[in-house]
Write a protein that binds this DNA or RNA. Structure first.
Lengths: 130, 130
DNA sequence: GTAATTGCAAACGGTTTGCGATCTC
DNA sequence: GAGATCGCAAACCGTTTGCAATTAC
């Protein structure tokens, strides 16, 4: 289960910065911001705390997949499916582009140019090999 | 415009590997595969060629955003909008989860657990500052 | 008191880049 | 030939980690 965690002033400051920002900052941005309050905090501490907070469900990390890039031989537009078991990435033969873009353009103030949609779950092969 | 490019045997081999793979491999995986054909090819060459091929639209790179992670103070489920101008990431107040998951579950062999959807375009602030 | 946490700096891992040699056009 | 590309190795950069000192509980 989850290890016991303490609320240090560093952790509190990081959480505060994050809660008061509606955009989604990078670790470095958070570091600079927190430094105004705790000048000698280290970047390592920021990273460690972000990870702890994420483990505890207090915040969320927004990186898609790992830090490896993946390359696609088919440059046309299509959605991807990432298998949670084997880690493979597959193409989906479904297209909702115009629907989705239109919806956001109509319902929000943002001007949408494109979107990326990625599903995750279990691929057919891995469902078999149970 | 685009610089002139040449079709070296390295580039051809990389492209071939990529075209013959329906999953979307990492650079390292491609490297290992190509090495069987050109044993002394270097990983740097693989990266360089992947970038050239991507610039020419022959392949596509599947990393979402940059290599920086971004952190979200609101751990609930929601979609994001990435502004192409200021680089900011914002929340969207729209939810289609069950619709989308159901659609893929019905129309494909994959078992979907979740998905991630990210729009990009221009945010309201940047539309003003034209 | 004691285990979690910190600051620091070194290590890590994927990717990029500078170089002189090589190959494509 | 000229310039794009190669192989090699070092550099880069975001992130993680080992360690001794500190701090929350």
């Amino acid at each position: 289960m989850a290890k016991k965690t303490r609320m240090t002033k560093q952790r509190k400051a990081i959480l505060k910065v994050l809660k008061n920002t509606k955009s989604h900052p990078t670790a470095d941005w958070i570091y600079e911001k927190v430094r105004k309050e705790i000048p000698n905090i280290s970047l390592g501490t920021v990273y460690r705390n972000l990870n702890v907070l994420a483990e505890n469900g207090k915040i969320k990390v927004l990186d898609y997949g790992s830090n490896h890039s993946r390359y696609d031989g088919v440059p046309d537009h299509h959605y991807h499916f990432r298998c949670e078991k084997c880690g493979g990435v597959f193409d989906l033969d479904v297209d909702l582009s115009s629907d989705l873009n239109k919806k956001i353009n109509n319902e929000t103030e943002f001007t949408v140019h494109s979107h990326r949609l990625e599903f995750s779950g279990i691929c057919p092969d891995c469902q078999q090999k149970n």
